[in-house]
Simulated assay, not measured.
Amino acid sequence: MLHAAEVRLNDRGQIEAPGKEVRVFRGEAATPLFGSVSKDHDSVRFTPSLPFVAGESYRVEFQSTDGTWSTKHLRFVRPKAELPTVVMRHSDTPFPANALKFYLHFSQAMEQGVFLERITLHRLDGSVVQGAFRETELWSPDGKRLTLWLHPGRQKTGVNLNTDDGPVLVEGERYRLKIAASWRSTEGVPLGKKYTFWIIAAAPDHQCPDLKRWKFAAPKRGTRDPLHILFDEPLDPAMMHSALHVRSGDQEVKGAIHIASDARSWSLVPAVEWPLGRYDIVIDPLLEDLAGNNLQHPFEVDRDQPLKPAPATTLRFEVR
């Protein structure tokens, strides 16, 4: 039970307050944070949609049982922590001008809901590409990988935004993706320096990956040599982790997955030595290249026509 004016952050990342209603604001903002409220006897709990950030101040307004409202200010203690860092893997690979997304990998879980304020895309002349990103913010479960979507309405040929505003990327041009030094981890620690990643726009890609042009060789039995697959073009590096599986019968071959820096190849180093036998490489047909073309159809397919889901594709090899 909370005392009359006690407001606190519990160990589950919720704000607890006495009374029957509660609203939470970041600093002196006029709009309350999104979240859910649950009630427990004479107290309420607020669970934020996005994690609270250490070092930030919050204003908690809560209503007592007699209907009166009170206000308390909380400032979460910023613990001592290392500066977070960020990398953009596979940035040495030219992106097709109609690319759909990039991935940013942070060393720590990051503050969410602010990426449009922390990331800008610049042309070589220093001007900002306005409206470059879709507002959808997609984080990995651990809060360390951000999928940065380029606006599909501008990247898809012939639709209104593409025609009116032009594409985000233009073939042959170079761009700087800038990450603000002020972006904080959920522990409240900022990056501390500005990060810049170069993006080179190559020719647009409207073709599906071609399985017939993939190359691989079966490893030898009794070894832990990697199964190495070379693709006909760079594929989506994040999707590769879940879209390719190696099976022996109904058993999946466990091991360590490695993806090349140019996103053109995938390798599996088995946890144990390869035994004699037949194996299947099971591939999700929705595996995409960097422009969103998957094994089933190109990105710019006529969406008015229904598409039948394709079964998983299988490549077979023998270990001898």
Rank of each mutant, 00 (worst) to 15 (best):
A4E: 15
E6S: 07
L9H: 08
N10V: 00
G19S: 05
G19V: 02
R26I: 10
A29Y: 03
P32R: 05
D42C: 08
P48D: 05
F52R: 07
R59P: 04
E61M: 10
E61S: 07
F62G: 00
S64G: 07
S64I: 05
T65A: 13
T65P: 04
W69C: 05
T71L: 13
F76M: 10
R78F: 00
K80V: 07
L83C: 02
V86S: 05
V87C: 04
D92K: 08
N98G: 08
K101V: 02
H105C: 06
A109S: 14
E111L: 01
F115A: 02
R118N: 03
D125N: 11
S127C: 04
G131D: 14
F133E: 09
E135W: 05
T136V: 12
D142L: 04
L148R: 02
L150Y: 06
K156V: 13
T157M: 11
V168C: 10
V170C: 04
R176W: 11
R176N: 11
L177G: 00
R184A: 01
G188L: 02
L191I: 00
G192I: 01
K194N: 09
Y195K: 10
F197K: 03
F197D: 12
I199N: 04
A202G: 12
C208Y: 05
C208Q: 14
P209V: 06
K215V: 11
A217V: 13
A218P: 02
H228N: 01
P234C: 03
M239W: 06
M240T: 08
Q251R: 11
K254R: 15
H258F: 04
A263S: 14
A271Q: 15
A271E: 15
P275Y: 10
D280Q: 15
V282K: 09
I283L: 02
I283G: 01
D284S: 07
L287D: 10
A291L: 12
N293M: 13
N293T: 00
L295N: 06
E300N: 05
P311W: 05
T313A: 09
L315K: 06
R320D: 13
